[in-house]
Simulated assay, not measured.
Amino acid sequence: MTPEQLALYAKKTLAAPVYEVAIQTPLQHAPALSERLGNRVLLKREDLQPTFSFKIRGAYTKLALLSPAERAGGVVTASAGNHAQGVALAARMLGIEAIIVMPTTAPALKVEGVRSRGGQVVLHGANFPQALAHALTLARNGYTFVAPFDDPDVIAGQGTVAMEILRQQPDDLDAIFVPVGGGGLIAGIAAYVKYLRPQIKVIGVEAEGSNCLQAALQAGGRVVLAQVDSFAEGVAVAQVGAHCFEVCRHCVDDVITVSNDELCAAIRDIYNDTRSITEPSGALAVAGIKRYVNQHRLQGQTLVAIDSGANVNFERLGDFALRAERVEMPVAAALLDTDQHRANRLGAR
């Protein structure tokens, strides 16, 4: 992207009216994880937003910038849940009718979250692409479609996360790890960071079963994944957004993937340091930091992870715990063997 294009995104981000509804979330040190990894890890706590996800930033920015005629006609969107709740809350605050199309597989917690905020829920399709197609059909009836990620205003709203990070950590920042679904969050963060502090790395983290940005960068253009794993439903997207990809291909330094088991281990890591429960997509950045640090043998750096959301059904927590044990068990077993060996040696003396 040209410097002028980046400057335009930065200007839109600075002007985004997110604080009419969103809060500035803390950048919280994760002491236990930092000690284990040998790097300073900071968590950007977007799970503390009014809708428990960063999505309220982009949703409110888009709706606040609609014309009076567009507001009067109502809006429609498609979402697995986090963007849906953001649109519902923003629409209620601005007095706009909102129809939210969600896949039938959306977590009940997210569906109820939309309804409790005044959104009209339409359950359609088994996945996000099918819900999206139905929402676009409804938009032909006069509703304004609010894209969940592929819109410059939405991207600018999400960019306010980066604006806060750079203000909260003005010095000594090496990399920001960002969860990736359709690409709105990472595009907003990357555009803002690369305009103001290009030396900071922006690294995307995707679930192995929904790596649409990584596939697009490798192919040199947007691709549609043949299959998408919905374990981390918040990022279960088959194709990165067009606006998002244009930013990412110029401004993102690297994209890595992590397994579902690694996500569960990261959920536990976040819990151990914050006593908060993160949804799988919300834990992507922490899982990515762990893998990246191991692969590149990083030491002594300051790394930020976007803790992007906490909308998860309680019933899934048992599965998360079992999967986390499966990932960490080899390490724990090795430590146990070492401790036992040490005890045996001391006992023999």
Rank of each mutant, 00 (worst) to 15 (best):
T274C: 07
T274P: 00
T274E: 09
R275H: 10
R275Q: 07
R275K: 15
R275N: 09
R275L: 09
S276F: 13
I277L: 14
I277H: 07
I277K: 04
I277F: 09
T278W: 01
T278M: 15
T278Q: 10
T278H: 05
E279R: 08
E279P: 10
P280M: 08
P280E: 11
P280N: 09
P280C: 10
P280F: 09
S281H: 04
S281T: 12
S281N: 06
G282Q: 04
G282E: 08
G282D: 06
G282P: 00
A283Y: 02
A283V: 05
A283M: 13
L284N: 07
L284K: 01
L284M: 06
A285S: 10
A285P: 04
A285C: 09
V286L: 09
V286T: 15
V286M: 13
V286R: 12
V286Y: 05
V286G: 05
A287G: 14
A287T: 00
A287H: 04
A287K: 04
A287W: 00
A287S: 08
G288V: 05
G288L: 08
G288N: 06
G288S: 08
G288R: 05
I289Y: 01
I289N: 01
I289D: 00
I289E: 01
I289G: 01
I289T: 01
I289R: 01
K290C: 10
K290G: 06
R291M: 10
R291G: 12
R291E: 11
Y292G: 03
Y292W: 10
Y292F: 13
Y292A: 00
V293T: 05
V293L: 03
V293A: 09
N294A: 13
N294T: 15
N294W: 14
Q295H: 11
Q295L: 13
H296I: 00
R297A: 15
R297T: 10
L298R: 02
L298K: 06
Q299S: 15
Q299C: 13
Q299T: 14
G300Y: 03
G300Q: 05
G300P: 02
Q301Y: 04
Q301R: 15
Q301K: 12
Q301E: 13
Q301C: 11
T302C: 11
T302V: 10
T302F: 06
T302Q: 06
L303Q: 05
L303K: 05
L303H: 00
L303E: 02
V304P: 01
V304D: 00
A305L: 11
A305M: 13
I306A: 01
I306Y: 02
I306K: 02
D307T: 11
D307Y: 11
S308M: 06
S308G: 09
S308A: 15
G309V: 02
G309S: 10
A310S: 14
A310P: 00
A310R: 08
N311M: 08
N311H: 04
N311S: 13
N311I: 15
N311C: 13
V312A: 07
V312Q: 03
V312W: 02
N313P: 02
N313F: 08
N313L: 12
F314M: 13
F314E: 09
F314I: 15
F314S: 12
E315M: 13
E315Y: 12
R316K: 15
R316Q: 15
R316Y: 08
L317V: 08
L317K: 03
L317W: 09
L317A: 01
L317Q: 11
L317C: 02
G318C: 01
D319V: 10
D319P: 04
D319M: 14
F320I: 08
A321N: 09
A321P: 02
A321I: 14
A321Q: 15
L322A: 12
R323V: 02
